[in-house]
Simulated assay, not measured.
Amino acid sequence: MTGWDALAEELAQWSEAGRVATLWWRDDDAVAATPALARLLEAARVPLALAVIPGLLEQSLAAALRHRPDIAVLQHGFKHRNHEPAGMKNAELGGSRSPAELAADLASGWRSLRDAFGNRALPVLTPPWNRIAPAHLAALPDWGYCGISTYLARRTAYPVAELLQVNTHIDVIDWHGGKVFVGEVAALRLLTGHLRARRVGEADPDEPTGLLTHHLVHDAATWAFLDQLQDWLSRQAMIRWLSTGEVFGGCDRG
């Protein structure tokens, strides 16, 4: 049985239960209009959330998205810089940073995004390396955020009161194997696995299954898979891609 066969069987189970499998797409590390970004915008035929690094933002990115109101912007930390000591896992929003220092950086980054993208910028934080210290997580609503997105199935929809968490689950890049495509088998296993976990109650059934990409490092195999995946899923009646506004419904701070 191929990965596509296993995915088809899983979706058949959703259909038999009268359920629609929801998905969403988050792409990280956007900073400027690049050939890779142009290819992403052309390749994405479903709603897209672009996680932008505000401290590195170039005006060319705002210009590239000016006529793409369908693309939402999330805040990808501040400058995507590691602040943890040697021997610790990389994190920009880790425990080594004081709340005051971090809050100032994030506020500066948010102003940059709002100035560049207006109300398409949502107060949803996507921590670099998908890591954030618990104390900083707890402070996010006080800092003006109503959403957070990391990686792997969430434990609860609201880890902090008034902070909705919606994660991603299918990372298509093999970060430890040369930053290349993780492979069709592995990618489809991640997709099928999260859908099954939702269906049988091993994961939150209400958390949409999230595709995670990084356009700046995609190789030819990654682009080809994304095209094939969208084509294949477009023929499945029990699949629905959610817009970022649907994923983080009502999340705005003016």
Rank of each mutant, 00 (worst) to 15 (best):
T209V: 10
T168R: 15
A186H: 13
G55D: 01
R45T: 11
T209Y: 14
N82R: 09
H215S: 01
P128S: 07
H67T: 12
H67F: 04
W223E: 07
A86T: 08
V31E: 04
V247I: 13
Q165F: 03
A43M: 05
V217W: 08
L164I: 05
A49W: 09
E202K: 12
S96Q: 09
E92G: 01
Q228W: 00
I132Y: 10
A224R: 10
W110R: 15
F78W: 15
G109Y: 10
S98L: 03
P35M: 06
I53H: 07
G245L: 13
V124F: 06
L190Y: 15
P99A: 14
M1F: 01
L106V: 06
E92L: 02
V182T: 13
L216W: 11
P134Y: 05
E10W: 00
N130L: 06
L48G: 08
D142Y: 00
A237H: 10
G245H: 13
T22E: 11
R154W: 12
H67V: 02
L37Q: 12
A138I: 05
A8H: 09
V185K: 13
R26D: 02
A100Y: 08
H76I: 03
H215T: 14
Q230N: 06
D105E: 15
F181L: 05
A237L: 03
A63K: 07
E42S: 06
P141I: 09
S108Y: 00
R111W: 01
R111P: 00
L7Y: 06
I170F: 01
D70F: 01
Y145C: 04
V247H: 07
D5T: 01
I53F: 12
D5A: 12
E9K: 01
A43R: 13
A49M: 15
V20M: 05
A12D: 13
I148M: 08
E84Y: 08
L37W: 09
A107V: 00
K179E: 14
D252R: 09
V31L: 06
H169R: 11
A197R: 14
A107F: 00
D171K: 10
R114P: 01
L211P: 14
A161F: 12
D105I: 02
S96E: 06
T126D: 07
A62T: 07
G183R: 15
E84T: 05
L40K: 13
L41W: 10
M88C: 05
K79N: 08
A197E: 09
A161M: 05
A133M: 10
R68W: 01
P47H: 11
F248Q: 02
A62L: 11
G245I: 10
H176P: 00
P123N: 15
K89E: 02
D27G: 07
R198L: 02
G177E: 11
R68I: 03
P54N: 13
S243C: 00
G109T: 12
Q75A: 03
E92R: 04
A153K: 07
P205Q: 05
D5N: 03
D5M: 04
A43D: 15
E92P: 02
A139S: 14
L229S: 13
T126P: 06
G210L: 13
V46L: 08
A38S: 10
A49S: 07
R198M: 08
R199N: 06
T150F: 09
R45F: 02
L190V: 04
